[in-house]
Amino acid sequence: MNEIGRLLVGIGLFLLLLGGLVLLLGKAGIPLGRLPGDIAYRGKHTSFYFPLATCILLSVALSLVFYLLSRFRR
Rank of each mutant, 00 (worst) to 15 (best):
L62C: 13
K44L: 11
S63F: 15
I39A: 05
C55H: 06
P36F: 04
L58I: 11
F48W: 10
I30Q: 07
L7D: 01
L58V: 04
L15Q: 13
Y49N: 09
G20L: 03
V22H: 01
S70P: 01
L23R: 09
L18G: 01
I4Q: 11
G5H: 11
L68G: 03
I56Q: 00
G10A: 15
H45A: 14
L32V: 15
T54I: 04
R6V: 01
L13P: 02
P51E: 12
L25P: 00
L62I: 15
G43V: 09
L68I: 10
L58C: 12
L64S: 09
A28L: 14
K44S: 11
V60F: 15
A61Q: 04
R73A: 11
L69C: 13
R42Q: 13
L15V: 12
P51Q: 07
L15C: 14
L32F: 06
F14Q: 08
L16D: 02
V60S: 07
Y49P: 00
G29C: 04
L13K: 05
G5C: 06
T46R: 12
L15T: 09
A61N: 06
L35G: 07
V60M: 12
L16M: 10
L64G: 03
G20A: 07
F66T: 15
I30C: 08
L69S: 09
A53I: 07
L21G: 13
R42K: 14
P31L: 10
F66K: 12
G5I: 15
L13V: 15
N2E: 11
H45F: 14
I4E: 11
R34G: 04
S70T: 12
T54L: 09
G33A: 09
C55Y: 08
P31G: 11
G29A: 07
I4W: 06
M1Q: 12
F48D: 06
G26W: 02
L13F: 10
F48M: 10
G20S: 05
L8M: 13
G12H: 08
F48S: 07
V22N: 03
R73K: 09
L62E: 12
L35W: 02
V60H: 08
E3D: 13
L32W: 01
L58K: 00
D38S: 03
V9A: 13
L8E: 07
L18C: 00
F72P: 01
L17Y: 08
Y41E: 05
L23I: 10
R74I: 05
I30T: 10
G37D: 04
G33E: 04
T54Y: 08
